[in-house]
Design a protein around this nucleic acid. Sequence first.
DNA 1: CGGTCTCTTGACGGAGTTCAAAGCTAGTGG
DNA 2: CCACTAGCTTTGAACTCCGTCAAGAGACCG
Lengths: 191, 191
Amino acid sequence: MSLVLQQHIQKFAGIGESDINEIVSFFDKTELKKKQNLLTEGNICRHSYFVSKGLLRMFFVNDRGIEQTTQFALENWWMADYTSFQRQEPSEYYIQAVERTEVMAISYDKQEALLRQYPAMEKYFRVMHQRAHAAAQFRIKILYSLSREEMYHSFSSKYPGFVQRIPQYLLASFLGCTPEYLSEIRAKRKS
Amino acid sequence: MSLVLQQHIQKFAGIGESDINEIVSFFDKTELKKKQNLLTEGNICRHSYFVSKGLLRMFFVNDRGIEQTTQFALENWWMADYTSFQRQEPSEYYIQAVERTEVMAISYDKQEALLRQYPAMEKYFRVMHQRAHAAAQFRIKILYSLSREEMYHSFSSKYPGFVQRIPQYLLASFLGCTPEYLSEIRAKRKS
DNA sequence: CGGTCTCTTGACGGAGTTCAAAGCTAGTGG
DNA sequence: CCACTAGCTTTGAACTCCGTCAAGAGACCG
């Protein structure tokens, strides 16, 4: 599905038809089975991943041994631990496929080479990071302002299909509560 | 203090001496008194701000009327509501000077013009957003993993000078707790 | 020296956690 | 295609963190 990435790049950067094939050749297509890891704690996040099909999640394991999911990446979104990626230092995160997933991966070094060879790609990555930054600001606001119960209702009315697509315990892990409490929240409305 | 911005741009983008003065002329220097607002709720965030001196904070007012501070920007950091900025839609945030502050402001339109005229600036903004994105990922991890008490201790051991610099109630607003509870946390260690 | 703004202290309440156990579902091998 | 098991979801009781409210003590500024 390199076509998905190609179209995405063309949409956000002014790239000519002649260059686009060579640009896409900097990326490697990878297929992942459910629960397969792209990154594990303690390793350096050497790649940035574009999801062309499926669903990734990023999580860390807290001091009580609980997995905390900090973000999901659906089709057309990028995912990486950018702290680890930009400093090439060990990561504290896991990146894992929630379901069967296809990603286009680009290594740190290849991204550097790509940007040197095609400076027009700076714009593409600038826009991607600006959007991701805006999305992260929004997530932070949500974490400050909503109770877990409000988060659940807001999230499930905004992305009803998505809530069906993932198991309950992953949703709890993303909302930042226990599966037990999420179950209690859901029970309230059924009466 | 346009020199601070100039040096920052030169550090992160390969910009020649000849262009830098013209580039800096796209920005407007603004001085702010303590508690003066750069952005208020309901208005469009038309500028992106580079702090050359002083300290900004971004906050929103939650449904109970409480100010929730989501981020601070010290010298050499950028600040804007990028959701509002990139879509030119009304913001839900305030941006306010904590103390006497000097910023370099660039409007959305001027940034577009700057990037058209100096494509090398794409790299500068790409790097800034990537760093900000990484910082936001880190903040999200903190919000998931630490109790308010742990956040206080981690924050005040990491930035001891900064904690002195701001009033207690702003720190509480940033930690996401009440001034009363912060006071209780601080009292614990004194025995 | 008087008033407003900030910080502290304490009693009570509610949101959300922990632990334990039982019910349910779905994937797997035979 | 069924049976079994592992993993997911629900329920409930006791407990913790942190918010709310109220009131007092400093501290800063005119």
